[in-house]
Structures are given as structure tokens and as C-alpha cells.
Design a binder for these strands. Sequence first.
DNA 1: ACGCAAATGCAACTGATTTGCATTTGCGTT
DNA 2: AACGCAAATGCAAATCAGTTGCATTTGCGT
Lengths: 141, 141
Amino acid sequence: MLSKDLKVVFKKCGIKNTVQRQAVYNFLLKESAPISAEYIYMELTKTESESMNLSTVYRILDLFTRKGLVLKSNLQADGKSTYEMNHMEHRHHLVCVKCNSIVPIKGCPLSDYEKRLSESTHYKILEHHLEILGICPKCQE
Amino acid sequence: MLSKDLKVVFKKCGIKNTVQRQAVYNFLLKESAPISAEYIYMELTKTESESMNLSTVYRILDLFTRKGLVLKSNLQADGKSTYEMNHMEHRHHLVCVKCNSIVPIKGCPLSDYEKRLSESTHYKILEHHLEILGICPKCQE
DNA sequence: ACGCAAATGCAACTGATTTGCATTTGCGTT
DNA sequence: AACGCAAATGCAAATCAGTTGCATTTGCGT
């Protein structure tokens, strides 16, 4: 994505356009899998073309999450939070535990379920995170 | 549960029977919701009848988790891990984003879905992680 | 180009969890 | 029933992810 477009995206959210925010945004755009703040920081500082600080990454991710640009998840077994682009389209992924490939799943198996769950528990259901693990056809051979 | 029975449970797992392990085990048995190590420690030390150290609680929970007696989860928004008895039954939880309380959900909405998914994608489905976020009745007021 | 609020960098802090090490305890053996 | 030793515990210090205070820098409306 061109930085010109990003400027518009940020403006729409009422936040300033900075090199660091562009870097994080563009990095998340390239990644299809949810990733940690640490990982983003590491990758962005590899190429020392831009200044980037770990706490800045955290602050940016937090901001993006609050603005709805990014989705945060605490599901990881190692305790680290992960972040991914919010494509505004509710989507889940099928992850291969052998090759770590990720494919999106068509449709959400929980759309009806949430309605029923809400009725039975009286919770106001906001969202859910689902990740399905398996072995892809290739890796089964 | 009587300590006599616990001795047998521990022996079956090949671990020593200690007062601390009994205390943690019995405490988890009483709790239906997943709870934090900190909480277990606080409650157990309230009644100063037994010696108990926070790192011991962590070590015991880790041991129990490795032995399959206990299920560990990192899905808390506040970053704390939670633990619950492993009743050997696949279970998901509903988390309140306001007060971080957790309640188990009866049944898994994905059991049938996984079978269909496996057929359509030719993946061998191994497991899934699901986290449902909402606002509990109390926090909606 | 100016000025100021917002963003960043840095270092210090926090809170959860882990670890090293000295002491204690459980438990199989004598 | 006491012995010995590996395993478990207590304690304090360390670690790790994430946050925060503050001085400096930067974006952007004027």
C-alpha cells in the first residue's frame, strides 16, 4: 500500500501519520498470520532504515487496536499477545502444525451459535477468536 | 476428596504426595471456573494452616498441567494465566471483557463442524482454540 | 515558516512467572 | 522405626512481556 493511502487511513481514524505507524501498518498488511509485538519490532529494526522502538510498537499496536484497524489476541500458548490486520471481514484460519501454512476458512461456524449462547447465558457477546489446528494434505503424505 | 484418594491420584502420575499439592488439588476441585495462580495462593494462605509459597503454586500448577490433571489457559485479557481441573472433557469459556470473569460453556459448537471442514479441505483436524468475549449480565447494568 | 499538541525514544518500572540455591520433606530401603 | 537421598519447597533474585514518565522530536494546522 502506498503511503499516500495510509495517510488517508490514519486521517480517517483521527491519528497522526508517522513513519513508525506506516512501518507497523505495512508490516501487518504483509503478514497473514497473527504476530507478536516483539516480532514486528525485530523485523522492522533488522533493516535499520527507520528508527523504531519496542515501546513505540506497543503503543502503535494498542492505538491501532483501539481504532479497530488491528485485532489483538491473547490465545498464544507462550503468553505473548498477537496482532493482525482487521480485515473487517470476520474470518478464521486453518493452521497446519507441520508447515505452519495458514488458509482462511470460508464462513464462520459460530454465527448462529453466538445468538443462542447469548440467549442462554444473558451475556452480550462481542466477538470470538477461533483458530483450528491440523495437518494440511501435503504434510500428511 | 480424601487425602487417601489423592495419594493414589498422585502415585498414578508418578509424583510425590505433599501437603501443598493436596491443598492446590483440593482447591481446584472446589472451583468450577478457571482461576489464577495468584488467587489460589491468596486463598490458600488466608487460612494459615499450611505453608504455601507462590512459586510453589506455580510449580505445582505446571506439574499438574504437564501430567494432564489441570488445564492451563492464557486467554485472559489481563495477561494472567488461569488453571482449572481437567475433567477430560473438551470445553470452552466465555470471558467478560469488563470484569474478566470466566464461565465454562456447555458443549462444543465445533464438533460437527470440524468433520465437515476436514472433508472439504482434506486437512486432518487436530484441535482448535476458541475464545468468546462478551459482557456478563452483571457488567451490563 | 511557526507553534504546539501529539508521538517517539529511552530508561526505569510493573506485575506475572521462573529460577538458583539452601533447606526440608516424602518415601523406598535397610 | 530410622536412614538416605532424590525430589519438593521457601526465599530471594532474576526474567520477560508490557507499561509509563519524561525529555526530545515530529507532524500538521495556521
